[in-house]
């Protein structure tokens, strides 16, 4: 028996439904991995003071707690193995910092690399949030400024801050690009290949 070919609208709708299902699945799998790490203690919520971090190119500046970057590449490094989804830097600046970035190093990796880098977004006054999306790390390095000569007082660095569970299901900018435009592209590829390679059973 010859199976009826799918209509274009059906193909597109199926691709969008598949994308939505994949997104939910992705989030559920991510939640499962996160829960597994949480329950096994590999994903602790840590609040690190300035003293817990190894500072480089940051020298004391005036009042207690204030430091100034002595060059354009200051950094704060934390050594320790953990599963990390989000990091928050709570810091006050007296001058704008330029770019605020975080690098991570995986277990067994010797150096930090530009390929494992994320820029901060300002989520509240004095709160810089880095989203890693779930990485097993052996060390973190935060560059609090990219200019040099910037006075900063680091209140703390929070690794894996508490986060409402449902926020995981809200797509970010990149996810929206994929969810909105990849399905129709995939449907077009499907249609083109189906027309060229008719593999229908008889």
């Amino acid at each position: 028996m010859k199976r009826a070919a799918l209509r274009p609208a059906q193909r597109v709708a199926l691709c969008y439904m598949a994308a939505a299902a994949l997104w939910v699945l992705w989030c559920l799998v991510g939640s499962g991995i996160m829960l597994d790490h949480k329950l096994s203690g590999r994903m602790p919520t840590l609040t690190l003071a300035f003293e817990d971090l190894a500072a480089q190119s940051l020298v004391p500046y005036g009042e207690e707690g204030w430091y100034v970057s002595s060059d354009a590449d200051p950094h704060l490094t934390w050594q320790g193995e953990a599963y990390v989804e989000t990091v928050q830097l709570h810091a006050q600046y007296r001058l704008p910092p330029g770019g605020v970035a975080l690098y991570w190093r995986r277990p067994g990796q010797r150096d930090f690399t530009e390929k494992q880098k994320v820029y901060a977004r300002l989520t509240a006054p004095d709160e810089y949030t880095f989203t890693l999306g779930g990485e097993a790390v052996a060390a973190l390095r935060i560059d609090p400024d990219s200019l040099g000569g910037v006075p900063v007082r680091v209140q703390d660095v929070t690794v894996n801050p508490p986060r409402a569970w449902y926020l995981r299901f809200v797509p970010g900018g990149g996810a929206w690009v994929l969810l909105l435009f990849v399905p129709v592209f995939a449907a077009a590829v499907w249609q083109a290949l189906a027309a060229a390679l008719p593999l229908r059973r008889r």
Binding site: Y93, P96, P97, G98, G99, V100, Y119, A120, R121, L122, Y128, G172, G173, G174, W176, V177
Partner: peptide, 9 residues
């Protein structure tokens, strides 16, 4: 697609 608001300080 990224929010990189820390770059605009």
């Amino acid at each position: 697609w990224s929010d990189v608001s820390s770059l605009y300080t």
